[in-house]
């Protein structure tokens, strides 16, 4: 699918074109809809908010090896917000980490691909998750292991912004700078929404970057759907041998790309499109000059009724 062969090393910051990555994120959203279609239930909107981030990480930024999910020098990826795992499966299949036909069994009894990631059933999952607040700590363990083994892999952890309510995140934030882990990158999916309301109306987390900075991290905000901004942030990460961990606060839209999910994102945190909506979707909008400056088609699914 990506024109690569087994055991090809995929270097960091590969020359993937921004336009191809933007299209890749759109295709990922479509693949997610297909997967949830088969399963009958899934997390749409909080996966759509990280489609661009996942696409850039797996198709450009992270150092990986085609077909070898256990390669010791690979960059690690942890999905703290494990409910977005459905967005990982098409990307891991593309890397030949498991047979592509596993995708059709997603969510079925005993199937290896599950709603939350399980490292014991799915090659390419670097750690299991499902309980919010644990994976940044686990990432510290992996980053410490890299130091002990004198390896230069990076460990990336995507956290939800609601996940920042968990106290353990701040125990980990304190420890990461204390241990001088410049090989650790936290990405906060700041989609502004948790189960009850807007994230900060339920419990204020702002200023996110300011808080991480106060804990000793290099932290900054980007537009989490702007491919060029994501590329720039990832391409300019400090050398893993440096001593300050990096936090990228990605401002995103929960449900990005689907009009009715963007409008009522919490309704689509966990749901099922159903045959009527599914039959009308996807619809792609053509046009130039999208809001992020891309020149091609802009992916958008419109609600077909009401």
């Amino acid at each position: 699918m990506n024109g690569l062969h087994l055991n090809d090393v995929l270097d960091r910051n590969r020359p993937a074109e921004p336009e191809a990555l933007r299209r890749g994120a759109e295709e990922l959203r479509l693949a997610i809809i297909d997967l949830i279609d088969g399963a009958g239930l899934g997390h749409y909107s909080s996966t759509f908010s990280i489609a661009e981030l996942l696409t850039v990480l797996y198709r450009r930024t992270m150092r990986l090896k085609q077909g070898d999910p256990a390669w010791p020098d690979r960059d690690r990826f942890l999905l703290g917000k494990g409910h977005a795992a459905v967005g990982l499966w098409p990307l891991l299949a593309e890397l030949d980490y498991f047979p592509a036909d596993w995708l059709s069994d997603f969510g079925k009894l005993g199937a290896p691909l599950t709603d939350h990631p399980n490292m014991r059933t799915t090659p390419g999952v670097d750690f299991s998750s499902g309980s919010l607040g644990h994976n940044l700590s686990v990432g510290i363990g992996m980053a410490l292991a890299a130091r002990l083994q004198k390896r230069d892999y990076r460990t990336f952890v995507i956290l939800g912004d609601g996940e920042l309510h968990e106290g353990q995140v701040w125990e980990a934030a304190m420890a990461a700078s204390h241990f001088k882990l410049g090989n650790l990158v936290a990405i906060v999916d700041a989609n502004g929404s948790c189960a009850t309301g807007s994230t900060s109306s339920v419990m204020n987390i702002e200023p996110v970057a300011g808080r991480f900075a106060a804990f000793g991290w290099a932290a900054s905000d980007i537009d989490g759907h702007d491919i060029a901004a994501i590329i720039k942030a990832f391409d300019t990460l400090p050398d893993p041998g440096m001593s300050v961990p990096t936090c990228i606060v990605a401002r995103t839209l929960k449900g990005k790309g689907v009009s009715f999910m963007e409008e009522t994102p919490r309704k689509w945190h966990l749901g099922f499109l159903g045959s009527e909506d599914r039959a009308r979707a996807p619809r792609r909008k053509s046009g130039k000059g999208s809001e992020h400056g891309g020149s091609g088609r802009r992916f958008f699914i419109h609600r077909g009724r009401g």
Binding site: F127, H134, S137, V138, I140, G141, A145, G167, Q168, A175
Partner: peptide, 15 residues
């Protein structure tokens, strides 16, 4: 920070 220590250990064990 007992909970953090447990999860950090798990990350080391996974490595």
């Amino acid at each position: 920070a007992e909970c953090n220590a447990m999860s950090v250990a798990a990350g080391l064990a996974a490595s």
